[in-house]
Design a protein around this nucleic acid. Structure first.
Lengths: 190, 190
DNA sequence: ACATTGAGTGAACATCTGTACACAAATCAG
DNA sequence: CTGATTTGTGTACAGATGTTCACTCAATGT
């Protein structure tokens, strides 16, 4: 996992992975059919863990009678990112990276997130009469904003300076702008 | 340029580039000090052309007395993307790609775009009293949305199916949501 | 207790890689 | 035309790479 942190997955050799795992090259094939296979597995594992974390986060919020606001969700996400930096570097890097199969895997998972978020949104009083399509469009926008925040956070290696807070505040403002827009979107439609 | 279309830049060898250019490997060094150097040059060239196209687009709009609306700008951008597909595949791929120097170059150029857009926004009647910081935050959000549209357009190889229109419509809706939000943002601040 | 299986080994291969070096051709300035 | 500078060539080398094959070894279930 450390390997995949700062170089593109496509530029990593099977032998490097084997070396990193303390294993002879040929033994690699006992676990994965190819590098592509490894990549897809990595995506699925990372995403599974992330999904679990977010679900737990939402549960905790509910337990404290707190609403799952955008700020709260962003906070949970970013904490998870900090705890699993290498994985997210990998995900952000390979989302549009060089291997089609991996791109597809990430895209599928992100689409799932959007759908989930769209369902959450549909329960908000202000949005009850939105069409499913518009809900998903809004959800995708929110996911995009959050993903951009993650990418910015990881790309700046400033690690601990004020840049981190800056990114969080910017992202929160952007989310508010979108929510305000969503509040205005509905009326002109009906 | 065709080389860099679907594989990550970091996984491309100097020799492949030389081969693609019809040149012996050693001659590569007559033009670039390293692969990294090539990458940065590629970024700068692509961005220079894009900047020129957008400026001309805005000039044309002005000549036709049309406002540079978000829809118009998106249209110009996407047409340019279609005409220079390989370059944009490269840019989207390497924005968070494996080579730090290239990431930095792209990031710098994007930041420039945001600043330019922020200036344009500052001239809109509804936003005249926004703080420069908030203007830039909004501008970055718009750039993010447009960039996401570009990435989605290039990732789907559907090429000509309805997916293209779908992406454009989604993006337009997202932009409208943001603009609506921006219209509501200002009041609570003063 | 023993055969079956999953995981790791080691040698070998043909191929590709970056870069060094001395040399040739082409372009250009005066 | 001539001399200089830029661009390209050919050869060479040490090292890395993916994949094959036949093998050992330890764990497992019955």
């Amino acid at each position: 996992m450390g390997l995949v942190a700062d170089r593109s997955f496509g530029s990593i050799s099977l032998r490097e992975v084997a070396r990193g795992a303390g294993i002879v090259p040929t033994a690699f094939y006992r676990h994965f059919a190819s590098m592509e296979d490894l990549g897809v597995t990595l995506v699925e594992d990372s995403m599974r863990v992330l999904r679990r974390t977010l679900r737990e986060g939402r549960r905790d919020l509910a337990a404290r009678q707190a609403l799952p606001t955008a700020q709260n969700s962003l906070d949970i996400l970013l904490r998870h990112v900090r705890d699993n930096e290498a994985q997210f570097r990998f995900l952000v890097r390979e989302q549009h990276g060089g291997i089609a199969e991996i791109r597809r895997a990430i895209d599928t998972e992100l689409r799932l997130f959007s759908k989930e978020l769209a369902i959450d949104l549909s329960r908000l009083p202000d949005l009850v009469q939105w069409s499913p399509e518009d809900l998903e469009i809004a959800a995708e926008l929110i996911v995009t904003i959050m993903l951009t925040a993650v990418a910015d956070l990881l790309d700046g290696e400033y690690r601990g300076s004020g840049v981190e807070r800056e990114i969080v505040e910017r992202t929160e403002k952007q989310l508010v702008m979108v929510f305000l827009g969503m509040g205005r979107w509905s009326p002109p439609e009906r």
